[in-house]
C-alpha cells in the first residue's frame, strides 16, 4: 500500500515537473509521453528485432559463463591445488572494469558477435566462479562420507546449488549491463545501439522509453528467475 503510494508519488513528480516547468521538457519528457512512446516502440518490428538480437547475445553469454564457471568454481572448491593457481588470477581480474575490455575484444575478434558475447561471458564469469567455489568448498563432510560408503559420486553440485543459484542471479544482471555496454560501443544491432542512436539523433523521448523498457525487462527477468527457482526447488531455504 505504502509502496504503491511512493511509486505513484514518484511518477506524479516525473509527470508534473516538466509540465510545470521545473525541468525542461526537452531534457526530461513527462512520464505519460515516455509510456506512450514505450508502448509504440514495442509495436515496431525493427525495435523488436533489435530486442531479439540483444536477448540472444544475453542468453548465449550467460549460458557459456555458466558452462565454464560452475565446473571451474566447483573444481576450485574441491582441489586446493587448482584453487591456488586460479584464485590469484581471479583477484587480479576482479578490479579490472570488464566493460573496458570491449574495445580490446574488438581488436582481437573483430566487431562482431564473438566480441559482444565474449564480453558478457567475461563479466558473468567472476560471480559464478566465486559462488560455485564457495558452495563446493562448503559441502558438509557427512554428505561426502555417505556418498563414499554407498560407492556413489559425491553430490558436490547438488549441495552447492543454493550458492550457485545466488551467483547466477547476480550474473543475470551483469549480463544485461554488459550486453548494453557492448552494443553501444559496437553499434549495428541491438537495444543498446538503438538507444544510443536515438541519443545521437536527439530523440529524447525515445531514449527515455528504451531505458524504461530495458529497466522493466531487467526487473522482470530477475523476478521471473527468483519465482522459477522457488517453484522448481521448493526445499530451498533462505534468501536467493
Amino acid at each position: 500500500m505504502l509502496g504503491a503510494l511512493a511509486v505513484a508519488l514518484l511518477l506524479g513528480v516525473w509527470e508534473l515537473a516538466p509540465r510545470v516547468g521545473w525541468v525542461r521538457e526537452q531534457s526530461v519528457p513527462p512520464f505519460s509521453d515516455v509510456a506512450r512512446e514505450a508502448a509504440s516502440l514495442l509495436g515496431r518490428p525493427e525495435f523488436l528485432s533489435d530486442l531479439a538480437s540483444s536477448g540472444a547475445r544475453w542468453a548465449a553469454g550467460f549460458a557459456v559463463a555458466v558452462l565454464i564457471g560452475v565446473p571451474l568454481g566447483a573444481w576450485m572448491g574441491r582441489s586446493r591445488r587448482v584453487r591456488r593457481i586460479v584464485d590469484p588470477l581471479l583477484a587480479l581480474g576482479y578490479p579490472v572494469p570488464k566493460a573496458a575490455l570491449i574495445l580490446l575484444f574488438v581488436l582481437w575478434f573483430g566487431a562482431g558477435n564473438v566480441a559482444r558475447v565474449g564480453i558478457v561471458v567475461t563479466g558473468c564469469l567472476i560471480p559464478i566462479v566465486i559462488s560455485a567455489m564457495h558452495g563446493a568448498a562448503g559441502v558438509a563432510p557427512e554428505l561426502l562420507w555417505a556418498a563414499r560408503s554407498l560407492g556413489r559420486r559425491p553430490p558436490i553440485l547438488q549441495a552447492a546449488l543454493p550458492q550457485i543459484l545466488s551467483g547466477a542471479r547476480i550474473a543475470i544482471a551483469v549480463a544485461i549491463f554488459t550486453v548494453l555496454a557492448s552494443e553501444l560501443l559496437i553499434r549495428g544491432s541491438g537495444v543498446g545501439a538503438y538507444m544510443f542512436d536515438a541519443l545521437d539523433n536527439g530523440q529524447t523521448v525515445t531514449v527515455f522509453a528504451v531505458a524504461a523498457i530495458v529497466a522493466g525487462l531487467g526487473f522482470a527477468l530477475d523476478a521471473a528467475y527468483v519465482l522459477g527457482v522457488r517453484r522448481a526447488l521448493p526445499w530451498l531455504e533462505g534468501e536467493l
Binding site: 509502496g3 543475470i172 549491463f177 548494453l180 541519443l199 530495458v214 531487467g218
Partner: peptide, 24 residues
Amino acid sequence: RALRPIVSFLFPAPKVALYPAMLI
C-alpha cells in the same frame, strides 16, 4: 514499505541504460 518497490525495481536495472538520460 515505501522504498522497497522502487529499490527492487532499480536494483536489477542496467544503469548504463540510464546514461543517455543522465547525459541529457
